[in-house]
Amino acid sequence: MASNVSTKNTNNSNKNGSSSNSVISKLKNTFGLQQLIILIVLFLIYGLFAALSPAFRSGSTLTSIFDASYYVGFLALGVTFVIITAGIDLSIGTSMMCAAITGGVVYNQLHAPLWVALLVILAMATAVGCLNGFLVAKLKLPSFIATLGTMMITRGLSSILSNVQTETFPLRGTSDGWYKSIFRTSGDFPTGAIVLIGVAILCAIILNKTRTGRYIFAIGSNREATRLSGVNVVRSEAMAYIIAGFCAGLAGIAYAATYTTIMPGSGAGFEMDGIAAVVVGGTSLAGGVGSILGTLIGTFIMTVLKVGLPYLNLQPHYQIFITGFVVILAVYADIYRNRKKNQ
């Protein structure tokens, strides 16, 4: 994690120009502090639910939390890259469901083996990511508009490709049911948590240890300055959208494994769950700042709220209501931090 923090500090210190050593260490402390705080908030929310509801304190509830976190988690991990470039990707939710339903068509209607269908899901979502990258990085469309367009395209495409039919993936216990064990074994062990954390580590390495990752941070801080210093910004920026697309594909597989049935035209709104998790995790919508660990914690804050609130016998609309407050508070923290930084 130390490397993660230091990368951001490098960027910030670049921006601040002649910041002294003491300022750097101060920044370091505050960023470390922020992730620590949301981690504490996560545990406190969990503890609160556990204290209020005995039924919440069971292993099976923890499995439910993991089950609900996978697709949001993958979406959030991918879109973290885009948000760090100061862009947004609204298409991830529908693109994930479009890819998943395409996989279903390939499996059910074209009778391809299941592993082919799963690869099709990844390929489809990555292709949408490539399109987004092309539109935003190459053609310079505003990311909000470009991905709003691809959001509608993928939403319509899922209905077209599936002929407005629901696609059902194989059930557990059938000969092709093995893919469900990627995320939860028949003994209810949440193997998906390992997959999610594995992908998160991979994302952290790309973001902090590779040149592409550093360029993505730089583009978010100051795109023009990055371009002038000789960086191929088109390639790096497009890469962020492609990663978001690939992760949406992973989310599609996780969704199919967890929920089995994919409805045509669905997925609108999922992107907001993912973006909210990123924002709660402390990544700035202004770009240039962000961390994978924060996104992961943000994802679990969102899902613990989602799974936990019904244990207090609250109806779904209360969950959305309360989650909304969490998002607003998190965004305010982001704005507050930026204002402080610019002072």
Binding site: I37, I40, V41, L44, I45, L48, F49, L52, L305, L309, L312, L314, Y318, I322, F325, V326, L329, A330, Y332, A333
Partner: peptide, 15 residues
């Protein structure tokens, strides 16, 4: 933020 969160969740729990 933290106190507000607690309060929100706490209230809903209380209900």
């Amino acid at each position: 933020i933290f106190a507000a969160l607690l309060l929100l969740v706490g209230c809903s729990g209380g209900n």
